[in-house]
Amino acid sequence: MDRLTLKNVSAYYRQLIVNKEVYVRAVDDVSLSVKKGEVLGLVGESGCGKTTLSKVMMMNINPPLEFIKGEVQLTRRDGEVIRLHKMSRRLLKNFVWGKNISIVPQEAMSALMPTLKIKRIAYDLVRSHDPNAKLEDVVERLEKRLEELGLPDYIADRYPFELSGGMAQRTVIAVATLLNPEVLIVDEPTSALDVLTQRIVLKTLADLMVKNIVDSMVFITHDIAIVRQIASRIAVMYAGKIVESAPTEDIIFNPLHPYTKGLIESITSLEPEVRKRGVKYIPGQPPQLINPPQGCRFADRCSFVMEKCKKEEPPLIKIGEGREVACWLYVKR
């Protein structure tokens, strides 16, 4: 069952160049669904639009970002479908964000108000949905949640700056999931941490799924080696589009799209497989999103490029169980 569904969404940034206004097509005609019980890894390199896509999932659209078209739907646990793209910002804030869908931003520390204690931050969050909430109840709930995630309960009485990086990150995760949202989006939750802490944060995120605190999770990252530890499915994004999505093992061991292949082969991890194949790279760089090329956006860097690739954009087609790829190599004539 789908929890979050995006249908043909486009979101562009409005940018001023000298004296002309142009659109940067950060998210261009993307369709994606996140199922119940699934951790979706959204993988892509800087500037591919993955963070913008996370904003679209929340419908947290602020200028210069503009929502151009498409549908964003969220299915609640009680079966009711909410159409986020039809709702006003005020409605989203009071009824959806934090309650049905929540986000853990890139820099956890800056998400926490430095002058408030953690319990106070949690209280404010709950109160924005339930004005009659009592502080004692919220604190009790928060301490329970902290315990569930293996954090000491005294954190509730601390100020954000008293926490270390990894601790702060996990605290933000605990606060963001206080109301048991259906969907949790985490944006590069580990990139600022050292490897030892990284592992603990990943464990905390896995706990959220195991303990049914959230139904589905979207894990946004540039690091495949990290996301593969937790994701059940991986979607690869390139230049504003999803180029491939498949179950994790398929992406790692049998990538189909030439970009995914290149990406997997450029990873240096501490494994004999990697030492054997050496460090590879994809030549060139992603296209400008102000004026993206007409055909496939990867055509310039692709070693399998054909005539057709430069003229027509490949559709995202279904290949086998749960696999989708947007590449002319796999379109049967």
């Binding site: 000298v18 004296n19 800087s46 963070t51 890139q106 820099e107 590069e188 990139s191 600022a192 540039h222």
Partner: peptide
Amino acid sequence: MVTERLEVRSMKLIELLY
């Protein structure tokens, strides 16, 4: 690593005046 870069850059005089 992936944070948005807010940076000073040199602008052309005409861009500035505009």
